[in-house]
């Protein structure tokens, strides 16, 4: 019996190693190929730093990354503010409106991105040209709007599940001690949900940086975000610079992730709680 037990455990561990290898294979490949000195990304042409050097000399790449960062920060801000407020309302102010609002959030989450994309393109054109709101002809505005929808729903879920897990008595104590609603919100409720808000903000930012489908449709030429630049390169020919930029962005993302993990751990969450918060469950 003892022998059989350890055999099952052993095969599960082997399976885990295989899964991790599978998960990391393409990422490691991209890391290695960012030092490819060849002309095309797929064909190895010797080790070197040419690709990193050409990031500096090619303005198109830097512009694309800059557009992505701008859209990411602004849409994360909007999604975090809207989602946090909605999440607090969902958790603390139950009423007849809650099921309807949840249906809306679920619809936003389950609608395939491609449908959002094809719907937003004519809508932006309509708002910008037919209604005359020139704001919606601006590339960054369009990207921000498109990226904020899904993220708003995600932040609302995360904040809601965090607050539902917390006792309301602290907030009640505050109002029993005559704290006005606004002060109660900023001094009690908000600090309680901070880890969830942070996780939501980071998730929104990453989702925005990652967003290719909606961005490809709503983008205005002149403000092409990074993933759309890469997508067009897939069609015309991938060069090693793309891997180099990805390597830099991966390192930045890992840094941000580590930062959030440290903040969450300070707040006393276990690894499992962090996974639950970040995973939105």
């Amino acid at each position: 019996m003892k022998q059989r037990t350890s055999l099952i455990d052993l095969s599960m561990r082997a399976w885990a190693v295989i899964v991790f290898a599978f998960l990391f294979a393409p990422i490691i490949i991209i890391l290695i190929y960012s030092f490819n000195n060849g002309r095309l990304l797929v064909a190895w042409g010797g080790f070197g730093f040419d690709s990193f050097a050409s990031i500096v000399t090619k303005p198109a790449i830097r512009d694309a990354v800059w557009v992505s960062l701008q859209a990411g920060v602004i849409s994360a801000l909007i999604a975090t503010v809207l989602g946090t407020l909605a999440g607090v309302a969902l958790a603390r102010r139950a009423g007849k409106w809650v099921p309807w609002f949840l249906v809306l959030l679920v619809l936003v989450t389950v609608t395939p991105e491609i449908v959002d994309a094809v719907a937003l393109l004519p809508w932006m054109v309509f708002l910008g040209q037919d209604v005359g709101l020139g704001l919606f002809d601006n590339g960054i505005v369009r990207l921000v709007v498109g990226h904020s929808l899904f993220s708003t729903a995600v932040v609302a879920y995360i904040v809601r599940s965090r607050l539902i897990g917390l006792d309301e008595s602290l907030e009640e104590a505050a109002s029993d001690l005559y704290a006005p609603p606004l002060r109660r919100f900023t001094q009690i409720t908000l600090p309680l949900v901070t880890p969830a808000v942070l996780a939501g903000a980071l998730l929104s930012f990453t989702l925005s940086l990652d967003n290719t489908i909606v961005a490809a449709f709503v983008q205005v030429s002149g403000s092409t975000p990074w993933p759309v630049y890469v997508l067009s390169a897939v069609r015309t020919g991938l060069r090693p610079e793309i891997a180099a930029v990805s390597t830099i962005m991966l390192l930045l993302t890992l840094g941000a992730l580590a930062l959030v993990a440290v903040v969450l751990r300070r707040a006393g969450d276990s690894a499992t709680d962090i996974a639950k918060t970040v995973g939105g469950g």
Partner: peptide, 10 residues
């Protein structure tokens, strides 16, 4: 957390 498109290119 790595770009979707980049992973696929990998």
């Amino acid at each position: 957390w790595t770009n979707f498109l980049i992973r696929t290119i990998g």
